[in-house]
Simulated scan of single mutants.
Amino acid sequence: MSLPIIQIKHVTATYPEKTALKNVSLTVYDDDYLGIIGPNGGGKTTLLKIILGLLKPAEGSIQFFKNGRPANHIRMGYLPQYTDIDRHFPISVHDVVLSGLKKKRFSRYNKSQNEQVRQTIEQMELADLQHEAIGTLSGGQLQRVLLARAIVQKPDVLILDEPNTYIDKRFQEQMYEMLNDLNKQCAIVMVSHDITEILNNVKHIACVNESLHYHDSTDLPKEKLEEHFLHI
């Protein structure tokens, strides 16, 4: 049975120049694969920031759960739309993935953490590249490394903001296969402008354009969905 892991109630989020979200409610479940769509400036990224704790809502609340019980926090992995990683910085694939793990200040990563990195690199099919500098990678390879960094801590929820950035059609298919496998281990929340890929891969859809409309099924025409979310 699916249990709630994130519950957003009547959230309104504002910036000095505009209201980004108005009276938005949403429940994400522990086995969810939720696609979030909507026009540019409609509030999709603002919703992610609220889930991640990077932005406090002006009104409303957000509650986390573990095993169906209220929790102060949950583990989240995050793949942003644009990364500020410096591709000229002399850091290897292995060390980028390692940076996704938390450790105490001035302490070293332990044997167990290094094993987590090894397993994640294998899972993301990056073993042949683990000692390469990130500046030598293609866009698709870099995106895979950043995805590995997002999941190395074994998150309860994986949050992706436009994961198709930098990657070609061939790797898109591979990435979605990886995400389907990851969904067996954690919930996934993904923002994407690609409605076709959303319909082909996710379980549920949230259409965001200041307000939010939730679809429990992806069994609906793309044209109807486009028409709907553009006029929420």
Rank of each mutant, 00 (worst) to 15 (best):
N180Y: 12
G35E: 04
Q123K: 14
C207T: 05
E132Q: 14
R69L: 13
T45V: 08
Q123Y: 14
Y78D: 04
E226S: 08
I195K: 03
A148H: 07
P221L: 10
Y166V: 04
L3S: 15
T14I: 01
Y15T: 06
L3V: 15
G43L: 04
D161I: 06
I62Q: 06
D168H: 04
E227C: 11
L55E: 12
L34E: 02
P4A: 03
D30F: 05
N40R: 06
N180I: 11
V11M: 05
H204S: 10
G135P: 09
Q63Y: 14
R69G: 01
M76F: 09
P163S: 01
S138T: 10
N180S: 12
S61I: 15
M1H: 10
N201V: 08
H213A: 02
E197F: 07
V93P: 07
L21V: 00
L54S: 12
D128T: 11
I74C: 04
I74W: 12
Q113F: 04
E210S: 01
H88G: 00
L126P: 08
V145A: 01
I159Y: 08
I232W: 12
R170N: 11
L26V: 05
Q172T: 07
I62Y: 09
I121H: 01
Q113C: 03
L129C: 03
K104V: 13
K56E: 14
Y78H: 09
N40I: 08
Y15I: 05
S92F: 05
R149P: 01
K49A: 02
L158R: 07
K103Y: 10
S25D: 03
L98R: 06
K203P: 13
P155A: 01
K102Q: 12
E223T: 13
S107R: 15
V97P: 06
E223K: 11
L34N: 03
I195C: 03
D156N: 15
V145K: 04
I205M: 05
T14R: 07
T12E: 03
G42F: 05
I121L: 09
N164M: 08
L182P: 14
L220G: 01
I232F: 11
R144F: 04
E177Q: 10
I36E: 01
R69W: 08
Y166I: 04
V152Y: 14
T165A: 09
T19D: 00
I6A: 02
I74P: 11
L230M: 13
S2D: 14
K44N: 02
H131L: 13
C207R: 01
L3F: 13
A20C: 00
